[in-house]
Design a protein around this nucleic acid. Structure first.
Length: 1044
RNA sequence: GGGCGAUUAGCUCAGCCGGUUAGAGCGCUUCUCUGAUAAGGAAGAGGUCCCUGGUUCGAGUCCAGGAUCGCCCA
């Protein structure tokens, strides 16, 4: 009976993976992998929730496979790794999708449509693609519990978020404030700074230089500059820097006041300067604003003020200030008591205070405003200015900066704690910690928390009508207490929650909830506790699983989830909620551009999976490069990883199964195998396995799949192209030890590979071992130094080098490997010679030579040259290196080489002092003599004796015949184990060669009979071949019996 | 304008603490091996290691300045 299920050499990996998935389902392998670790030390993973209102793309596959690989590894290493899925449900993107579906585009439309119905549609849509996400998640082998996913829109989740907000509120860190915020006039809501960060685009705006005539001084104007002409309607003051030097510059018949440093850039060269003065002297002067529509800014309105933000980097050094539309402007206004007047409506159009521009969208009004300035003579110059300007990250509308009332979490109050918490986080790559993320934390601004929208966690703040009292509600129970149990709706979202009112405990007036919902980033940042509905239930679970040992998302989450997680947990617990974070790069197309739907360059993950399979997809992401550098990605690049790695692995495995089945060899477990029967090659394969285990564990513990994967690929290559290649004879002969070793190596390899390529690893394990229901229930291999033999590894490496040189020499001489040669002459040091002698049979077979002859003195092949070993001598001699190099070059190479080879040292004179150099201080390089067929690498060389006698020639011909017969067997479609009757006829010299090596020929070709009679009757096939111009005819008949 | 990262063969990427002759894979040309392989092997073509300075006996590697690309911030 065949010991193993037979293996298809041309197996389709995608099809195989489907079968493996089926097996995992049937055996509930994922569930079992967790159950088996009950009570084991936990390794905590947090899932950053995606939003499932769109189809998953290749970049999602990237983060999901990296989320998968380390939990799998840690599970096999003995940890309990719970993996709870989650979905981010709230937020503007969801609302926008519904607006699109409904064909509406404003808040009024939504109100008209009905908030209850609108939110109901959001609730549905947010899970519209969950099914596809789950299907993809399973298909790529991302093990995560999707059945028990947390949803940020669940009432339990919302309640936990409320609890967190109340904690913050109790500390006085949640408050309403009026600040200038980035505001999207289309979406009708303010954006947080991390949302703003998502939407910068290069745009061309007008750049205008405007005269602000000084009151009471004809012909003299302050020269201001702005790229937002529409804010000139609201000009309230000018700001200057008190310590900057300003000038009165004469231009034509007028005088302009601006910073001296900018005169040349703005007005050109050679402009006459009438006077110089510090900015402080300008403060207090009154001027005429560009437009007359608004003039009640208070006593300091339309005068020059001192502003610490004024620089001479750009513009004129005289800064136009519109109190409502810029952060600096607003602060200046607060300082000098300017009235805040905002003539722009929430939809971005001027109200009636905008004069002739009333009703127009501010950005659209820019050209006409510039024109009006030109007509009134206020415009000095108008240019176009290209710069990055923030746009709404979802709808693309240019953002406006408004002074607005908005709710803030005062994260600036805990900046130092944030920085301290960051110190405890291990970042991959490391530079993010003090670079991108650390700098972001240092420049922390308060978190603009509220959104004047509909679909989100309602901000749980109730206020009485006077606005004098407010209460933040931290739980459903608290709300019931305040408003009565019946009053609490079954759905905590708008609009229902807004119906909940209660009398103010302080003044008795009715309290109503403020209208806002909160930033969805706060939701996701709350997942460490909210996913368990902590602290209301499952507080123990939370305690056990906080903080996370590992999280992983793409780089764009630096200011997203990475920040919101850190901020929320630092506010609540004073520490980070994650210990290690892996930060992935972006997916680019082959040209290095970001993949996006609009560019049409996206690679759909399903295409990759159908063509190459999930393992190949994973392998590509894990090993092709450091994952944070970004990927230049295409279907083809994944295909390469299949060819190079997956196929080599599969072929090695299929080789084992093929010959084990053919020979009906059931390989004994390694520890039951006869270890005395191990060959050096066996010991080498086992030693290299241990080396690989050691390295892979080290790398994966350091979150490095790249080097772990590359080490595994190197081992697979060694196993296939050296161990198996050099051991084929033993497999054909059914040597159980060889089978045992190879099986052991493949089984251990399957465990090492399991976290990375879980499908193929499981398939190999299932067929070769199967003592567990899945490889994923095994322990990760432990490093076992008793199977390590580093001396043997070094020797083998020397041997492989010698073989390479010999092969190169053959190729140079154009002598086929099939033709045996008498002798290979090897130049080697003593240690190398010992290594090669120990493993001589490998070299003899691989090079197809009869003998090895070693020469240490290379005289007959070439001559030695001595070169200094800079690495060794550099630190010793420093500046004197050139002299040392010269002295080494001047040595008599031959005698020095002999001395060094025998362990002695040679002396060189430098600066009149004698210095002894040992063997490690110089390199011996062989310079080949003309006319020898010699390949060398450093001090190593192999030459071949090309002389052929009749015996060698006959043997070469016999091998040619075998080769021809094998081709004929293959051509006839025979299985490798089929026995044949063989008939040969043709050229007499060929037949002579066969007769001389009859045993060899019949053994190689599995011929039970050999006749020299041509193609007899009943021959399965008749082939003929040409060997060195001679004809041979080959007849084959498959015999019944063995192998059928 | 500031921060972070990148720049090495036609393509995708290695290159540790600085060591003198910069590598691999893919692709290309030629040859070869095969009783597992879609594979393997050999040779060849293909490089101003982005540029300019500096430090050093010695720089792809370290430092400074610049260029280009990407991301982020303003």
């Amino acid at each position: 009976m065949a010991p193993f299920r037979s293996v298809e050499p041309g197996q389709s990996f995608p099809a195989l993976e489907e079968q493996v998935l089926e097996r995992w389902r049937a055996r509930d392998v994922f569930g079992e992998s967790i159950r088996r670790r009950e009570g084991a030390p936990p390794f905590v993973f947090y899932e950053g929730p995606p939003t499932a209102n769109g189809r998953p793309g290749s970049h999602h596959v990237l983060s999901r496979v990296f989320k998968d690989v380390f939990p799998r590894f840690k599970t096999m290493r003995g940890h309990l790794v719970h993996r709870k899925a989650g979905w981010d449900c709230h937020g503007l993107p969801v609302e926008l999708e519904i607006e699109r579906e409904l064909g509406i585009s404003s808040k009024e439309d939504i109100e008209r449509y009905g908030v209850a119905e609108f939110n109901a549609r959001c609730r549905e849509s947010v899970l519209a693609y969950v099914e596809e996400w789950n299907r993809l998640t399973e298909r790529i082998g991302f093990w995560i519990d999707t059945d028990d996913a947390y949803l940020t829109m669940d009432d339990d989740y919302v309640e936990s978020v409320w609890w967190a907000l109340k904690e913050v509120w109790k500390r006085g860190l949640l408050e309403e404030g009026r600040r200038v915020v980035p505001y999207c006039p289309r979406c009708g809501t303010a954006l947080s700074s991390h949302e703003v960060a998502l939407g910068y685009r290069d745009v061309v705006d007008p750049s205008v230089y405007v005269r602000f005539p000084v009151r009471g001084e004809d012909g003299v104007s302050f020269l201001g500059w702005t790229t937002t002409p529409w804010t000139l309607i609201s000009n309230a003051a000018l700001a200057v820097a008190s310590d900057v030097t300003y000038v009165r510059a004469r231009v034509g018949d007028e005088t302009l006041v601006l910073a001296e440093a900018l005169v040349e850039r703005v007005l050109g060269e050679g402009v006459p300067i009438e006077a110089r003065m510090p900015g402080s002297e300008l403060v207090g002067q009154a001027y005429v604003p560009p437009f007359p529509y608004i003039d009640d800014y208070g006593p300091r309105g339309h005068t020059v003020l001192e502003g610490d933000f004024v620089t001479t980097d750009e513009g004129t050094g005289v800064v136009h200030t519109a109190v409502a539309f810029g952060e600096d402007d607003f602060r200046l206004g607060e300082r000098y008591g300017l009235t805040v007047i905002n003539p722009v409506r929430e939809d971005g159009t001027f109200d009636e205070r905008g004069g002739p521009f009333a009703g127009r969208f501010v950005k659209d009004a820019d050209p006409d405003i510039v024109e009006a300035l030109r007509e009134s003579g206020r415009l000095l110059r108008s240019e176009r200015f290209e710069h990055a300007y923030p746009h709404c990250w979802r709808c693309g509308t240019p953002l406006l900066y408004y002074a607005k009332a908005s709710w803030y979490v005062r994260t600036t109050a805990i900046r130092d704690e944030l920085l301290a918490a960051n110190e405890e986080i291990a970042w991959y790559p490391a530079h993010i910690k003090h670079g991108r993320f650390g700098k972001w934390l240092e420049n922390n601004v308060d978190w603009a928390l509220s959104r004047e929208r509909y679909w989100g966690t309602p901000l749980p703040v109730w206020r009485c009508e006077s606005g004098d009292h407010e209460v933040c509600v931290g739980s459903v129970a608290e709300l019931s207490e305040l408003a009565g149990t019946d009053a609490v709706p079954s759905d905590l979202h708008k609009p229902y929650i807004d119906d909940v009112t209660f009398p103010c405990p302080d003044c008795g007036d009715e309290m109503r909830r403020v209208p806002e919902v909160i930033d969805a980033w706060w939701d996701s940042g709350s997942m460490p506790f909210a996913q368990w509905h902590a602290p209301f239930e499952d507080g123990d679970t939370f305690d056990e699983r906080f903080p996370a040992d590992y999280i992983c998302e793409a780089l764009d989450q630096t200011r997203g989830w990475f920040y919101s997680l850190l901020a929320v947990s630092t506010l609540l617990y004073g520490r980070s909620s994650y210990r290690t974070v892996l930060c992935l790069g972006l997916i680019l197309d082959p040209e290095g551009h970001k993949m996006s739907k609009s560019s049409g360059n996206v690679v759909v993950p399903w295409d990759v999976i159908e063509r190459h399979g999930a393992d190949a997809f994973r392998w590509y992401y894990f090993t092709s490069k450091q994952p944070w550098d970004g990927y230049r990605f295409s279907l083809e690049t994944v295909g390469e990883s299949v060819r190079q790695f997956m196929l080599t692995l599969w072929n090695t495995y299929s080789f084992l199964v093929l010959y084990a089945n053919a020979g009906e060899v059931t390989p004994p477990a390694l520890n039951e195998a006869d270890s005395d029967g191990f060959t050096d090659l066996d010991r080498w394969a086992l030693s290299r396995l241990q080396a690989t285990i050691e390295l892979v564990i080290d790398r994966l513990e350091d979150y490095d799949t790249t080097l772990a994967g590359r080490a595994l690929a190197a081992y697979v290559d060694e196993l296939s192209n050296w161990y198996v290649r050099r051991s084929r004879r033993r497999f054909w002969d059914g040597d159980p030890t060889a089978f045992s070793v190879l099986r052991h190596c493949l089984v251990e390899l399957s465990k090492l590979l399991a976290p990375l390529v879980p499908f193929v690893a499981d398939e190999i394990y299932e067929n070769l071992e199967a003592s567990e229901p899945s490889v994923h229930l095994c322990d990760f291999p432990a490093y076992d130094p008793t199977h390590r033999d580093e001396g043997l590894e070094a020797a083998m490496s020397t041997v492989r080098e010698a073989v390479e040189l010999g092969r190169a020499a053959r190729a140079q001489a154009k002598v086929k490997v099939r033709q045996p040669l008498g002798e290979a002459i090897v130049v080697a040091r003593e240690g190398e010679q010992a290594a090669i002698e120990r493993l001589a049979p490998l070299v003899l077979e691989e090079l197809n030579v009869k003998r090895l002859r070693f020469v240490t003195d290379a005289d007959e092949l070439g001559e030695w040259e001595l070169k200094p070993n800079y690495r060794a001598l550099g630190p010793r001699f420093g500046k004197r290196m050139p002299q040392v190099a010269a002295a080494v070059g001047a040595l008599d190479a031959r005698s020095a080489a002999a001395t060094l080879r025998s362990g002695g040292s040679v002396g060189v004179a430098v600066d009149g002092h004698e210095h002894a150099l040992g063997a490690d201080d110089v390199q011996l390089v062989l310079r080949p003599r003309e006319g020898y067929q010699l390949e060398r690498a450093g001090g190593h060389a192999v030459a071949l004796d090309l002389e052929l006698d009749d015996a060698l020639r006959r043997e070469g011909l016999a091998r040619e015949v075998v080769h021809a017969v094998q081709a004929a067997r293959k051509g006839a479609g025979l299985a490798v184990e089929d026995r044949v009757e063989l008939a040969l006829s043709g050229d007499e010299e060929l037949l002579e060669a066969v007769r001389a090596h009859e045993g060899y020929v019949t053994a190689e070709t599995l011929a039970v009979e050999l006749a020299y009679a041509g193609t007899g009757p009943g021959a399965v096939t008749g082939h003929s071949a040409q060997i060195e111009g001679r004809e041979i005819a080959i007849g084959l008949v498959r015999t019944s019996g063995h192998g059928s």
